[in-house]
Design a protein around this nucleic acid. Structure first.
Lengths: 237, 237
DNA sequence: ATCAAATAGATTTTCGAAAATCCGTTGACA
DNA sequence: TGTCAACGGATTTTCGAAAATCTATTTGAT
């Protein structure tokens, strides 16, 4: 759903869509922030049409909200939605994982192993800015979770999962500065990887669920709501 | 996701979106059919922008496909996609149903009962045209399945389910003329309803799964692919 | 002073024309 | 005859201005 499809960057529309999505997911555009056409036209150097078209798409994906005749804003956030989305993601990701474990072949096993390896060799936070999460780590992390379910043979399930993963990612980005519970990510991912390749569906399910629940807790403990603009106005410059 | 929200009909954009979606779901616009802007402008009496915006949204929902610089077409159909979508819908609908059974209250029970009653009193096919499915029946059928899962307390799960239900509905619409396996819809729905209100999750799951599988079979047996335009051209007038 | 209608500025929505792109066809040339 | 570049009509994509709508404020009447 959100992977940067190189074929989609040929039209202005496609470029705006990708950039806008990435800006929202990374919270460079904050939750609830108004998205005025004029402002966006400046930001992305495009006319009204490609901008509105991209916004309309993102609205369907749930990253943006349209109030008729009052324009677009970045979708808001809440504890309830966080829990809802994380739980749904867990359940759907588990569905996909179980199918993948059932029908995945050796190539899939290899790709999971490879994805884990690449992830484990990537430092989570940048050495200079230890508060910011390393972009490359994020990419490999996404790639690892993608690889886990890739063999499930169900385009619809995969695309739903991708959308939910993005939504969750936005909350993670929001809570990025929070220094809470220390966490051994590598071990967590390794356990999931092993149970998966061992075809131990029960165990893999349990571990994956725990993994997602831990993330939820971590995000909940952070104080992300502090700098989210209130329903109504965007942050002052 | 697709319910006709009265608040969304104030802008031209909203009108086009609703009409277009309904035309696609009912297969008045056939799978693979090209959607030229000029044609749509005539059909819906609107300018380029609202049309393209609506199309962009439907593209995100998977009802329409955009090929860059080549325009939009109605999403294609295939046996593989039919099976994929139906299976995913079953699994997700079951997730939602289980949660609803867990946490739904007496009001929910009542609404399920009521929805079943309204559905059971609706003739499935119109008396004049026995091949066409009664619009009111379709509405009540959708309402019944909505009611089953409504109590699940998860907006994300509900909206995903709604999207999949729509997709499935399009296949059903495609196979509408086929006179295949006779089927006792009322009994099927009644059994599901009873198991649900009895809080017998296992049984409700089994019945619902069977219900969806039967629909899949019925659609598969029909010869819908016969009048679907081939990849490339729309049907002649 | 209070309330409703009128006004004005800001913003969204819509339009139609201009620019860019695609694709089948023509025609030049080996 | 076969290949390839260039042309031209059809279509998509993009633009910016015009129309419609919203919101806050002022005006005017009670």
């Amino acid at each position: 759903m959100s992977q940067v499809n190189p074929a989609s960057i040929v039209t202005l529309n496609g470029k705006v869509l990708e950039t806008l999505r990435s800006d929202i997911l990374s919270c460079r555009l904050k939750p609830n922030e108004r998205l005025r056409t004029e402002t966006l036209r400046m930001m992305y150097g495009a006319g009204t049409s490609p901008i509105r078209e991209a916004l309309m798409r993102l609205a369907a994906e749930g990253l943006v909200v349209l109030e008729q005749n009052k324009g677009f804003r970045v979708a808001g956030v809440s504890h309830e939605q966080l829990e809802d989305i994380m739980r749904t993601r867990a359940e759907i990701e588990i569905l996909a994982l179980r199918r993948a474990i059932e029908i995945g072949g050796v190539d899939w096993e290899a790709s999971v192993l490879g994805a884990f390896h690449r992830l484990s060799r990537q430092p989570k936070s940048d050495s200079e800015r230890p508060e910011q999460i390393n972009e490359a780590w994020k990419r490999e992390h996404k790639a690892f979770h993608d690889a886990l379910v890739a063999a499930c043979q169900s385009p619809s399930l995969l695309s739903i999962r991708a959308g939910l993963f993005d939504q969750c990612d936005r909350y993670v980005a929001l809570s990025v500065t929070a220094k809470t519970l220390p966490r051994d990510d590598v071990a967590e991912h390794e356990e999931i990887m092993k149970a998966t390749i061992d075809r131990d569906a029960e165990k893999a399910e349990r571990l994956l669920r725990k993994h997602i629940e831990l993330t939820t807790e971590k995000v909940k403990l952070s104080n992300w709501f502090s700098d989210v603009p209130f329903e109504g106005e965007e942050l002052p410059l």
